[in-house]
Amino acid sequence: MKALYILFGTLSLILGIIGVFLPLLPTTPFLLLTAALYVRSSPRLYHWLLHQKYLGNYIRNFRENKAIPLRAKIISISLIWITILNCIFFIAPYWWLKILLLLIAIGTSYHILSFKTLK
């Protein structure tokens, strides 16, 4: 079972890292999942994850404060809307797809804004 936890934790970590750069893929939930899987499988990997310079901050801030830094909120929401609007106006050929993309942008923005802001 430990090997599966490590495997899925590593996959979740990779998705979380990709999410830093890809606006529609959330970073924090994948990193929280990685932490949960690593704590059940390998204390060494869990310790390594929490003490990473950038990734560890995501996990610690969210676990301790249930909050997202203002800079991260601004960047996330800006990238989401830039990407979605680009798709709506230049890529999506069908009206139902445009509406779906708009609803995704609204939903993810609401989700991000529903968390407290870390100062």
Rank of each mutant, 00 (worst) to 15 (best):
P43E: 13
L33T: 14
K73E: 08
K2V: 03
P69M: 03
N61Q: 12
L79F: 13
Q52K: 15
L70A: 14
I17H: 11
I99M: 10
Y38P: 04
V39E: 13
S41V: 06
A72Q: 12
H47C: 06
L45Q: 03
L102M: 09
T34Y: 10
L102Y: 04
K66S: 11
L55Y: 05
I106W: 08
M1K: 07
Y38R: 06
A3V: 12
G9E: 12
Y110L: 14
H51C: 02
I104A: 12
E64K: 07
T10H: 01
A36Y: 10
G16Q: 08
K73A: 10
A92Q: 10
Y94P: 02
I74W: 00
I74R: 07
V39W: 08
G107K: 02
L49K: 10
L32V: 09
L97M: 11
I75H: 00
S41I: 06
F115M: 02
S41C: 05
L70G: 07
K116Q: 14
L102E: 01
G9A: 09
I112T: 14
T117A: 07
L100K: 00
I112R: 01
I17G: 01
I6T: 14
T10E: 07
L4W: 12
Y54I: 13
S41D: 05
I88T: 02
S78E: 03
H51M: 03
I104T: 12
N57L: 12
R63Q: 15
S42D: 09
M1L: 09
A105P: 11
I106T: 03
L70Q: 08
I68R: 02
Y46T: 01
I59K: 02
P43Y: 02
H51P: 03
S109E: 08
S42C: 08
K73N: 10
Y94E: 13
I75L: 12
A36H: 06
H111P: 05
L45E: 06
L31G: 04
H111C: 03
R71M: 04
H51S: 07
K2L: 04
Y110F: 13
F8M: 13
L25D: 05
E64D: 12
W96K: 11
Y5C: 15
I14M: 11
G56K: 01
I106Y: 08
L31F: 15
A36E: 11
L33V: 13
P23G: 01
L118Q: 13
T10Y: 03
I82E: 00
Y110P: 03
L37H: 07
W95V: 10
T10F: 09
F89I: 13
K53T: 06
I80P: 05
K2D: 09
A72W: 12
F90G: 00
S114F: 07
A72G: 06
G107H: 04
T10V: 10
L50E: 08
L15Y: 03
T117I: 15
R60E: 04
L31H: 05
L24M: 13
I18P: 09
Y94H: 10
N65I: 00
F62D: 03
W95A: 10
R71P: 00
P69W: 00
H47R: 14
R60D: 02
L103I: 09
A92P: 02
K2E: 11
Y94T: 01
F21E: 03
P43I: 04
S12L: 11
I84Q: 02
L50W: 00
A67R: 06
I6D: 11
L25I: 15
S114Q: 12
I104S: 07
L102D: 03
W95K: 01
L118M: 12
L113W: 14
